[in-house]
Write a protein that binds this DNA or RNA. Structure first.
Length: 573
RNA sequence: CGGGGCGUGGCGCAGCCUGGUAGCGCACUUGCUUUGGGAGCAAGGAGUCGGAGGUUCAAAUCCUCUCGCCCCGACCA
């Protein structure tokens, strides 16, 4: 390929719209352009990268026995209503009406569609297991699209769906996908981390996310892992072993009201009462759909709202606003407590359930209670884990290691869905015993466009992107320092031809630009290998090869140059 | 949705406060020179100043409304 024959609009300056290094680089290096918030044009170089990531994904899915199909982007509202997700997914979904005012959905995931398909096709356990996947554009009406392809409203995703006759089969199918994911992401150059995750709106019995660990702003998720065992989880899911002693047998002291003028925050109250924060219990009021729930958690802990949301079973969970808190507690914000709180369901963190004689707000402005005890002083509705993991805590798995944290980009996820969708959509097969049973399903996603940007976020330096060979838009760039020079042109053309003949993806920078411009563009775009054809080398009958990642330069004689270049290319990652 | 910021040739920005000829750098076109890390000189083209309304003799500039974009938060298949 000749540079002047494709379109690579590099920019000298950072575009104002970009914040992340990867976003800036992809725009500057001419890989993409924004159309509107969260929606992008993928230019020729990006198209090549996306093709490669898709192909790697396709190869590994095929190898795992999954079958490629294409499902529609446009979905009728009915399937979403039937599964019950029309209301759950709600505003996240791109919706439209056709000319007959019928509701339609631009698909963000395809559980409903594929389950409906399979329901009409498969009758017998003999046709199982089955796994179908597609690579396709997806839509999601993000509240705030940002970071380029990291959080777009339109993006490309590989989604796969497995169907099995029982949980045993699902486990096997799931493990196949997990293995395939490790291969996919390793081929993309990542040291990928698999972590336990919350199942969220997908529902089901278990889930994992595949994370690329980065040390930049691009790492949107905090992941927790044990320094002694294999345990790893994202922040939504992570738990830890509590240091809370069991005080339930302790003598319960009489409830005592204390005057705490203007002391609202945990810090103010602990300072004032000369008590450590872990002797306090926070009462956090939430609006869970149409109900008010109170979450009780130790003063030194942060709440994990995902855990609360799951436990309360609501669709929407948000902190109650000040007027609501005032009307519920009858006091200013900052003095809420569980005692005498009416019309509210209590969710106790398990640590709180073990505590005795703790401090809470008194539901009276400027007052707190001391020696509060669950059960005696207020009703307990649910006991559960509500704590947000913070790192440094004890591992819940091996109980010996300590939890460490990293920041990661989620590039893939896997869900054990169980029978949630098959039952909702009445998708049954006849098992060996002659009885109707719902398919046991799994669903598995890979963010193709997000993976591309994750690579740029993970592999770059001050000069630009550093693509791994496996997904680089071109493997080799040939840079004649002056293409107007007949001699240089001839040699560059010749090497270009020979390398192409070897089946290598090579681009010849035949632009009438100065050497500096070409070098800078080559580095910015991030071709793994650069061949410099210049007078300096030619005087010695040589050309130079530079490895983008390492900066390593090799000079070689002209004659077998193409062979030697191919050899070096073969050696690098 | 709450908070903050920004909309001026293709891109990055200045000008706005204090109203009066729309400017700079890059990019682009032509010519000459130059040619191993973002060349120089010369000439040239390109802008409804996001949109609508208002104030004024006069609006990029002041006022009102509106649309879009970016950042923080909530959200996240």
């Amino acid at each position: 390929m000749r540079w002047t024959q494709i379109y690579i609009p590099t920019l000298r300056e950072d575009p104002a719209e970009a914040e992340l290094i990867s976003h800036k680089l992809l725009l500057r290096a001419g890989f993409m352009r924004k159309v509107t918030a969260g929606v992008y044009n993928y230019l020729p170089l990006m198209q090549r990268v996306l093709h490669k990531i898709s192909n790697i994904t396709r190869e590994e899915m095929n190898r795992a026995g999954a079958l490629e199909v294409t499902m529609p982007v446009l979905h009728p509202a009915e399937v979403w209503q039937a599964s019950g997700r029309w209301d759950v997914v709600g505003k996240e979904q791109m919706r439209l009406k056709d000319r007959h005012q019928r509701d339609l959905v631009l698909g963000g995931t395809h559980e409903e569609i594929i389950t409906t398909l399979i329901k009409g096709e498969l009758r017998s356990y003999r046709q199982l297991p089955l796994n179908m996947y597609q690579i396709q554009v997806k839509f999601r009406d993000e509240i705030r699209p940002r970071f380029g392809l990291m959080r777009g409203r339109e993006f490309i995703m590989k989604d796969a769906y497995s169907f099995d006759r029982d949980e045993e089969g699902l486990k096997i199918a799931y493990q196949k996908m997990v293995d395939a994911y490790f291969r996919i992401f390793r081929r993309c150059g990542f040291d990928i981390r698999k972590v336990e995750s919350d199942t969220g709106q997908m529902g089901g019995t278990g889930a994992h996310e595949f994370m690329v660990v980065v040390d930049t702003e691009g790492g949107e998720n905090t992941i927790f892992y044990c320094d002694k065992c294999e345990y790893a989880a994202n922040q939504d899911k992570a738990t830890f072993i509590s240091d809370q002693p069991d005080e339930r047998e302790n003598e319960k002291l009489p409830l005592e009201e204390v005057h705490t003028p203007d002391r609202k925050t945990i810090e103010e109250v602990t300072d004032f009462l000369k008590l450590p924060a872990e002797r306090l219990v926070k009462t956090l009021l939430y609006r869970a759909d149409d109900q008010i729930v109170a979450a009780l958690i130790r003063g030194d802990r942060q709440i994990n709202e995902i855990k609360l949301k799951n436990e309360s079973g609501c669709l929407e969970l948000e902190m109650a606003d000040a007027p609501t808190v005032q009307s519920i507690t009858g006091s200013e914000v900052g003095f809420a407590g569980p005692c005498d709180l009416k019309r509210v369901k209590f969710f106790l963190d398990e640590e709180v359930s073990k505590m005795a004689n703790f401090v809470t707000g008194a539901n009276k402005t400027d007052y707190h209670y001391k020696n509060v005890n669950a059960g005696r002083d207020f009703r307990v509705d649910h006991i559960t884990d509500l704590k947000l993991a913070e790192g440094g805590e004890r591992c819940p798995h091996c109980e010996k290691g300590s939890l460490k944290t990293d920041r990661g980009i989620e590039v893939g996820n896997t869900f054990m869905l169980g029978t949630k969708y098959s039952e909702a959509l009445k998708a049954y097969f006849v098992d060996a015993d002659g009885k109707d049973k719902p398919f046991v399903m799994g669903s598995y996603g890979v963010g193709i466009t997000r993976t591309a940007q994750a690579v740029a976020e993970r592999f770059n330096d001050k000069y630009g992107i550093i693509w791994p060979k496996s997904i680089a838009p071109f493997g080799i760039v040939i840079t004649p320092t002056n293409y107007q020079d007949e001699k240089l042109k001839e040699i560059a053309d010749q090497i270009h031809g020979e390398l192409e003949k070897k089946g290598l993806e090579v681009i010849l920078d035949d632009r009438d630009e100065r050497a500096g411009v070409k070098f800078n563009d080559a580095d910015l775009i991030g071709f793994p290998l650069r061949v410099t054809v210049g007078e300096r080398g030619l005087a010695k009958g040589q050309v130079e090869v530079k490895v983008r990642r390492t900066g390593e330069v090799t000079s070689m004689d002209l004659d077998p140059a193409a062979d030697k270049i191919a050899e070096i290319y073969d050696r690098i990652d």
